[in-house]
Design a protein around this nucleic acid. Sequence first.
DNA 1: ATGGTAGGTTGCCTA
Length: 259
Amino acid sequence: MPTVATFNVNSIKARLPNLLDWLAAARPDVVCLQELKCTEEAFPREPIEDLGYNIAVFGQRGWNGVAILSRSRIEDVLRGLPGDPEDEQARYIEAFTAGIRVASVYVPNGNPVGSEKFAYKLAWLERLRGRARELAEFEEAVVLAGDFNVIPEPIDCHDPAAWAEDALFRPESRRALRAILHEGWIDAYRALHPEERNAYTFWDYQGGAFQLDHGIRIDHLLLSPEAADRLEEARIDKEPRRRPKASDHTPVIVRLRDG
DNA sequence: ATGGTAGGTTGCCTA
């Protein structure tokens, strides 16, 4: 019954104490991390290995950076999203572990709308769809877990009007995510909690957004049909967001039946 | 119309 979690830590260095506490308490089998903001060399391997995790990192200096942690052996690691050899941003790492294929995904933010960054976001999502299509051909259990920087529906946002012009909620961004879902992937959290409101994974640091529950749901685990067949539970763990020195994101966790 | 917060390749860029 492996559990797979996604957690945008907003700097692994700044978040290390909180992350270690959370790993020790929640004990997820596989964890996809985003926004490490460090190189592979600078990644704090030891304290995480001491909690029983193997680690695969794709980092860069200062920004972005993704990793996979797993209690099982990590095999067949792919660093970087295929489809653009010019792209140097560390936003995608994929591997086989714990009997499933897993990717840690950090979709570009894309603000401001209409900028080069927005075009990059849409192109990146299109490349992700291409990779998802390749992965689907293997007919294995696959989990694409990460910060998608897309609010799928109005229900995933405390105030849709306030986000209407934001790259996270623009129709183009939502359509790009939907294009992946339409090819047979499911949003694990929404599949098990179809009506639930206020199911957020991100609250801005500014303006007391967390205390007011002014959040958005942008961290997702997309499941291939073979993984969806095994989906048992999906939940948002708000505890890490309550702590001092919290990330602005909080983890989402799914549990899959044994395959 | 501004600034509010947090992190980093810090006195500005990204989120």
